[in-house]
């Protein structure tokens, strides 16, 4: 007999284990692949220190440069909304905190679930708008390949399944929850093989950018 609970048990059991293995091994490999390549020694006399400038860029690059903001407000604002919405939904929804607490023992206060619900709705709408932007903006459309659309899909799926599960729009509930967890597992599995890796490598990228510019005395 294959019931929705069996499905939930699978995604929560072996499914999660598989996803976790792929996710963690993949990320560690990707990071080491990058970092072990290293940099050649720089013999040019530095004008400024790398460390501080690198760390500053790591933080300051979070805010858009003014001119870029004016020239691509939609990308910037949309990007902010959905990233922040995604992280609020991921990390401030009480059941998620509960899950994290139960698995790795870390806990923090969450926010009201109806607030998360509203945030999730905005996030989903924004993600859809971002897709339209990607398909219509000449630059984004030109740059985008299957990977860009795949990563969009695996990002929005957990949001949608989570939203449906929360509102019990899929019946029975264990199936809704199972689909939600499965969509997260798909995200985890796809993650290390795609540009979703930017969630980790952007730290490295910003640091190198800031450090290399800082060495020349420029805060990038």
């Amino acid at each position: 007999m294959s019931t929705s609970v069996d499905f939930l048990l699978w995604v929560r059991g072996p499914g999660f284990d598989i996803a976790l293995v792929v996710f963690l091994i993949g990320i560690v490999i990707r990071l080491l692949e990058v970092l072990i390549l290293g940099r050649k020694p720089d013999f040019a006399e530095p004008r400024g220190a790398e460390l501080g400038a690198g760390l500053r860029t790591l933080v300051t690059r979070t805010l858009p440069e003014q001119g870029s903001f004016r020239r691509s407000p939609f990308t910037v604002v949309g990007g902010y909304i959905w990233h922040i919405g995604f992280f609020i939904s991921l990390f401030l929804f009480i059941p998620h905190i509960e899950l994290i607490n139960a698995t790795i023992g870390l806990s923090w206060p969450g926010i009201a679930s109806n607030l998360v619900d509203a945030v999730a709705a905005v996030t989903i709408v924004t993600l859809v708008a971002m897709l339209f932007s990607r398909m219509s903006h000449p630059v984004k459309r030109y740059l985008s390949g299957p990977e860009d659309y795949l990563t969009w899909l695996v990002t929005i799926l957990p949001m949608i399944t989570g939203y449906l599960a929360y509102h019990r729009m899929i019946d029975p509930y264990p199936l809704a929850l199972g689909l939600h967890i499965l969509s997260v597992e798909i995200l985890m599995v796809v993650f290390p093989f795609t540009k979703l890796m930017h969630a980790f490598t952007f730290f490295i990228a910003r640091w190198y950018n800031g450090a290399m510019a800082g060495r020349r005395g420029v805060q990038s």
């Binding site: 990707r30 692949e33 990058v34 970092l35 072990i36 390549l37 290293g38 940099r39 050649k40 858009p64 440069e65 001119g67 870029s68 020239r71 691509s72 990308t75 910037v76 990007g79 903006h137 000449p138 630059v139 984004k140 459309r141 030109y142 740059l143 985008s144 860009d148 990563t151 540009k195 890796m197 930017h198 490598t201 952007f202 490295i204 990228a205 190198y208 950018n209 290399m212």
Partner: peptide, 30 residues
């Protein structure tokens, strides 16, 4: 090297660099 690998790993094709480049802003050619 590591910087280049980290840069390629991080690009999400957001297209914002186009707006910083005069070759794009003045030609509109993606």
């Amino acid at each position: 090297d590591a910087p280049i690998a980290s840069f390629f790993s991080s690009c999400v094709n957001c297209g914002m660099c186009a707006e910083a480049c005069l070759f794009y802003t003045e030609t509109g050619d993606p």
